[in-house]
Simulated scan of single mutants.
Amino acid sequence: MPMRGLSRVPAVLLGCAWLACAGAQPQTPPARVPASLAQRLAACTSCHGSASTPPAAIGSGGERQYFPRIAGKPAGYLYNQLVNFRDGRRQYPLMTWMVQHLSDDYLHEIADYFSARHAPAPVLDRATLPAAELERGRQLVTRGDTALKVPACIACHGERLTGALPAIPGLAGLPRDYINAQFGAWRNGSRHALAPDCMGTIATRLSLADVSAISAWLASEPLPLDPAPAAQLARPLPLACGSAPENKP
């Protein structure tokens, strides 16, 4: 009998009564996340710096002492590195995981986005190395070493060490740990570029002491007031480099 009585009550009223008894409240629809490129690249800026991390600029590298500054780097260089991570020429599991399924067009879009950001980088304290070691770093960066067949860093990365369009990166403002890690990756074969791999060749000609001196001097040099890459190199590269064929020697 009671069941027959309930059957006459409209279903909607039964539903309302159940909600009242349960103390449930209608749920507010979740806020829509904007489908902007900046939102989709939040995974990148969580490491490489966002507008909310000091210094307050996207891609600046933030306060961390390892992740490189990517803001304002040449789009061609950023694209080449994304492809290298995707295709296995560079080894860093987090980067590989993020880009392994992305198309060339999407990688170009990411590279263009970060190359258009012009962010300051923190000036790091000069490394506490003996003066002679820092001078060795300055010598290698600005003059190279003919006996080792190592060209000066400025011969490829520009007089101001801010790189050159379309695909040569700047070195100023990079953390010392990052620079050391990349030299190590080239030396042990876990980082490659398109052949001929000029940096792979140079890295094998330098001693660990020379790498340490270079990274210490570079990491503590302040960025110039205008850190934008040069429109082009003043002269051809001193050796063939597959990632910058337009600047062939």
Rank of each mutant, 00 (worst) to 15 (best):
I202F: 01
A209N: 09
I168N: 00
I214L: 06
D210S: 10
I202V: 12
L223T: 11
W217V: 12
E221A: 15
L174E: 07
A172R: 02
S207Q: 10
S207C: 07
L218G: 03
S207K: 13
N188K: 15
L174P: 03
G184H: 10
A213T: 07
P169A: 02
A164R: 01
D197Q: 08
A185N: 14
A219S: 12
A193Q: 14
L194D: 07
I214E: 00
E221R: 12
L165S: 13
H192C: 04
T204H: 13
G189E: 05
R176P: 06
N188H: 15
R191Y: 03
A216G: 08
L174Q: 14
A181K: 05
L223Y: 03
L165E: 14
P222N: 13
R187D: 13
R160F: 10
G189V: 08
R191P: 05
L161F: 04
R191S: 02
I179A: 02
V211Y: 00
L223E: 09
G170A: 10
R187K: 15
L194Y: 07
S215N: 02
S207W: 09
G173I: 11
R160Y: 07
D177M: 06
W186R: 00
A213C: 11
C198Q: 12
G189F: 04
L161A: 05
H192I: 04
Y178Q: 03
P196N: 12
P196Y: 13
R176D: 08
F183Y: 04
T204S: 13
L208Q: 11
N188E: 15
A219Q: 01
R176A: 08
P222M: 15
A213S: 11
W217M: 10
P166K: 12
S215G: 02
L194K: 07
P169W: 00
A172L: 06
L174V: 09
W217T: 09
A185R: 11
A203G: 11
G173T: 10
W186N: 01
A219L: 04
L171C: 06
G163V: 04
A181L: 04
T204Q: 13
A213V: 08
D210Q: 14
S220K: 02
L223G: 05
A193D: 11
L171M: 09
T204L: 15
A167T: 07
L194E: 07
P222C: 15
G200E: 08
A181F: 05
R205F: 06
A195Y: 05
L208Y: 08
Y178I: 00
G173P: 00
P196H: 11
A216E: 04
R205T: 12
I179G: 01
P222L: 15
P222I: 15
D210R: 03
L206Y: 01
G163P: 02
R176W: 03
D210M: 09
P222H: 14
A172W: 00
A209L: 06
A216S: 13
D210G: 07
G170V: 06
N180M: 14
W217H: 10
A193T: 09
M199A: 11
V211E: 00
W186T: 01
W186A: 03
A164D: 05
I168D: 01
S220Y: 03
L165D: 10
